[in-house]
Simulated scan of single mutants.
Amino acid sequence: MRNPITLSTLSLAVSLTASSVLMANVAQAKPFQLEGEPKIAFIYGATARDGGWNEAIDNARQIVADELGYPIAVAESIPEDASALKNAIDLYVQRGFNIIVGTTYGYSDGIAQAAEKYPNVAFVNASGTTNADNLESFYARTYEAWYLAGIAAGGVAEGDKLGMLAGFPVSVVNWDINSFARGAQVSNPDASVSVLYTNSWWDPVKEGQAAKSLLEQGADVIANNLSSAAPFTEAEKADKYSVGFQLDMSANAPKGHLTSVAFHWDKYLVPTIKAIAEGTWEPSEYGAFPGLAEGVVDITPLPDSVPEAVKQTIAEKRAAIIAGELTPFDGPVLAQDGTEKLPVGESLSDEQLWAMDYLVQGTVGGGQ
Rank of each mutant, 00 (worst) to 15 (best):
G69E: 03
G183I: 00
S108Q: 15
S179N: 12
Q62D: 08
A166D: 00
F168S: 00
G96I: 04
F168D: 04
D160I: 08
G150H: 03
G106K: 12
L148Q: 13
S83L: 12
N87A: 15
R95D: 02
V121C: 05
G69W: 02
F138A: 07
F168T: 00
A153P: 08
L68Y: 00
A181I: 10
I72H: 02
E158M: 12
E80A: 02
M164G: 00
N125Q: 05
E80R: 09
Q94I: 07
A112W: 13
P119Q: 07
V186F: 03
R141N: 10
L85R: 06
G155M: 11
E144K: 00
Q94G: 14
G183C: 01
Y92D: 06
A166G: 06
D133P: 08
P79F: 01
G128M: 08
A140W: 12
S77K: 10
A88E: 12
E80L: 10
A115Q: 14
N98G: 07
A181Q: 10
L135P: 12
K161H: 12
P79D: 04
G183R: 00
S127Q: 04
R182N: 08
F123K: 14
A140T: 14
F123D: 07
L148S: 13
D81L: 02
A153I: 11
N178P: 10
F138L: 07
D81G: 01
